Computed example of a mutant assay.
Amino acid sequence: MKKILVILLILAAFYYWSSGETNTAAIVEKPTQDLAYSKTNRINDEIELAYKNRQSNVQVSGTGTVIKLLRDDNEGARHQKFILRLSSGQTLLIAHNIDLAPRVNSISNGDQVQFYGEYEWNNKGGVVHWTHHAPNGHHYGGWLKHKGKTYQ
C-alpha cells in the first residue's frame, strides 16, 4: 500500500511541475505579431534589458539617432565615438574601431545609424564596440550602417 501511495505522489508531483512549465512558457512568450510595436523597438528592448540587468559581452543590434559626436580615442587602437539615443530614450556610446574598419565620415547629429556589435554595461546606458569585422575569427564580426552604406 505504501508503494502505491509513493508512486501516486511521484506521478502527481511530475504532473504538477510539468504542467506549470508549460503554462509559464505560454505566459512569457511574446506575440509573433504586434502591430503597435515595430521590429526595431523589439530589438532595442533587448539592449534595454541588458542595461537593466547590468549585462556585458552581449551581441546586440539596433537603431538609434546620433545625438553627440565625440573626439576620436587615439590611445591604443583608434576608435570613432558617438552617442546614439534609442527609441526608448536610452543612450548608447558607439566605439567604432577605425584601425580595423573605415571611418563613418559623413555622420551628423540627427542621423539614423543601425549597428551590430558587443554591448558592455555602464551606468550611462552602455557601450557597443566590435562594430567591425573580426580579423582573427575569434569573435563575431560587427558593422555600422549609415545612409545605406555598411562599415565593417
Rank of each mutant, 00 (worst) to 15 (best):
2 K>V: 12
3 K>D: 13
3 K>V: 13
4 I>H: 09
5 L>T: 08
5 L>G: 01
6 V>I: 13
6 V>P: 01
6 V>D: 02
7 I>Y: 04
7 I>L: 12
8 L>G: 14
9 L>V: 04
9 L>M: 11
10 I>C: 10
12 A>S: 12
12 A>C: 06
13 A>T: 11
13 A>R: 06
13 A>L: 14
16 Y>S: 14
16 Y>I: 11
16 Y>M: 12
17 W>F: 15
17 W>P: 00
17 W>G: 08
18 S>N: 13
19 S>M: 07
19 S>F: 03
19 S>L: 06
21 E>W: 11
23 N>G: 12
23 N>I: 14
24 T>Q: 08
24 T>V: 13
24 T>C: 05
24 T>W: 10
25 A>M: 12
25 A>Y: 05
26 A>N: 14
26 A>T: 13
27 I>Y: 08
27 I>N: 04
29 E>V: 07
29 E>Y: 03
30 K>V: 04
30 K>P: 15
30 K>D: 15
30 K>Q: 09
30 K>N: 11
32 T>C: 05
32 T>P: 15
33 Q>L: 11
33 Q>M: 12
33 Q>A: 09
34 D>I: 06
34 D>T: 05
34 D>Y: 03
34 D>F: 03
34 D>E: 10
35 L>H: 08
35 L>M: 09
35 L>N: 10
37 Y>L: 15
38 S>W: 05
38 S>R: 02
39 K>N: 09
39 K>R: 13
40 T>H: 05
40 T>Q: 08
41 N>C: 09
41 N>L: 14
41 N>M: 13
42 R>H: 10
42 R>N: 06
42 R>M: 07
42 R>S: 09
44 N>V: 01
44 N>K: 02
44 N>I: 00
45 D>I: 02
45 D>W: 03
46 E>W: 01
46 E>H: 11
47 I>M: 03
48 E>R: 10
48 E>W: 06
48 E>S: 15
50 A>R: 00
50 A>H: 02
51 Y>C: 04
51 Y>S: 06
52 K>I: 05
53 N>R: 15
53 N>P: 00
55 Q>Y: 02
55 Q>V: 08
55 Q>N: 10
57 N>T: 15
57 N>P: 00
57 N>F: 09
58 V>F: 02
58 V>C: 05
58 V>N: 03
59 Q>T: 12
60 V>E: 01
60 V>M: 01
61 S>E: 12
61 S>D: 11
61 S>P: 00
61 S>I: 05
63 T>A: 11
64 G>N: 07
65 T>H: 02
65 T>M: 04
66 V>A: 01
66 V>Q: 01
66 V>L: 02
66 V>S: 01
67 I>M: 04
67 I>N: 02
68 K>S: 14
68 K>M: 06
68 K>G: 08
68 K>N: 11
70 L>V: 04
70 L>D: 07
71 R>I: 12
72 D>M: 08
72 D>S: 07
73 D>N: 15
73 D>Q: 12
73 D>V: 00
